[in-house]
Simulated scan of single mutants.
Amino acid sequence: MSKHIGATLSALALAVVVSGCAGGSGTTTTASPPPPSGPSATVAPASSAPMTSAPDASGPTAPGGAADLKTASTSGGQAVVDSKGMSVYVFTKDTKGAGTSACTGSCAAAWPPVLTDSAAPAAEGVTARLGTITTPDGKKQLTIGGMPVYHFAKDRAPGDIAGQGVGGVWYLVDPAGDMIKPAAVGGY
């Protein structure tokens, strides 16, 4: 019996190590989570299924029982926000479906990735395909329609959109996964 338990624990430990090392730069194109058999980014359909993991102390994530993302009316339009109501942005220098983020180093300090602990991210009111990519430090960054999403460090309260249009490369994202670009002022 002791041998059986030891073998089971060894197999379980190996499975944990292998799954913990899964990362990489590819993305899956299916609507359901892929089997945990190799390095890839995961993709999940938008749903209202609750997230069951605890928040990550290094960045905003959904508390147990809440959706990772939802929609809210902002002064920039109907936009995607995190579970706490903080605005979510896309970076035009990212490549859709690349499985990596172009925002690293000091960029990532000003624009922290929106993180999740869930293998199947959930959203309320978001119709775009959700997924994750692996950050350089091994965390799961949410993606919407294949684009990594970020917070803006200068947004302090739910509904803040101080990052909207910054540098002509940072934009809020709508529930369909499209960038929300500000309307031209004065008809130009």
Rank of each mutant, 00 (worst) to 15 (best):
P55M: 07
T143N: 04
G163Q: 09
S75G: 06
S75K: 15
K139A: 14
D178Q: 15
R156D: 15
G24Q: 04
P148R: 07
G186S: 13
V149A: 00
K70D: 01
D174H: 10
K84N: 13
W170Q: 10
P175A: 05
A119W: 03
A49N: 14
Y89S: 10
V80M: 00
V17H: 03
H4C: 01
T135G: 08
A176C: 00
F91V: 02
C107E: 07
V80E: 05
S2V: 08
T42E: 03
L172E: 08
G26I: 00
A110E: 14
A31M: 10
G177N: 04
V90P: 04
T27A: 09
A157Q: 14
P50D: 12
D56M: 13
T92D: 15
S83C: 08
G26E: 09
S25L: 03
T30H: 03
A57S: 13
S118E: 15
A123Q: 10
G165K: 12
S48L: 03
A120C: 00
T42P: 00
A176L: 02
Y89R: 12
P36Q: 09
V149P: 05
Q78R: 12
D155K: 04
G20A: 14
V126P: 04
V43P: 00
M147G: 00
A98M: 02
V169G: 05
Q78K: 14
G59C: 06
G131R: 04
G85V: 10
A128T: 07
K139N: 11
D178I: 02
D68A: 15
A57V: 11
D68C: 07
Q164Y: 04
T28Y: 01
G99P: 08
P113I: 02
A54R: 12
K84Q: 13
P34M: 07
P34E: 06
A57M: 09
A183H: 05
G76P: 04
V88I: 14
D82S: 07
L14W: 11
R156Q: 15
A72N: 03
T134Q: 12
W111T: 06
S40W: 05
A7F: 13
V173A: 01
D155H: 07
A123F: 02
V81L: 02
S87Y: 03
K84M: 07
V114H: 05
T42I: 11
G168K: 06
I180V: 13
P158V: 07
K96M: 07
A176P: 02
P39G: 15
G99R: 07
A157L: 12
G167N: 08
A66C: 02
M51L: 05
G26K: 10
S25E: 11
G163S: 12
D160E: 06
M179C: 01
D174E: 11
T132M: 01
A98Y: 02
M51V: 14
K3L: 12
S53L: 10
P113Q: 05
A13P: 00
T143P: 08
K84H: 14
I180S: 05
V16K: 09
G24S: 08
T61I: 05
A153C: 01
P36M: 11
L142D: 02
F91N: 14
A62T: 07
G6L: 15
G26A: 09
P158C: 09
T143Q: 06
A110P: 00
D117S: 15
A183K: 14
G177Q: 05
A123I: 01
G23D: 12
E124W: 00
T135W: 06
S25D: 09
G165V: 01
G163A: 10
D68L: 03
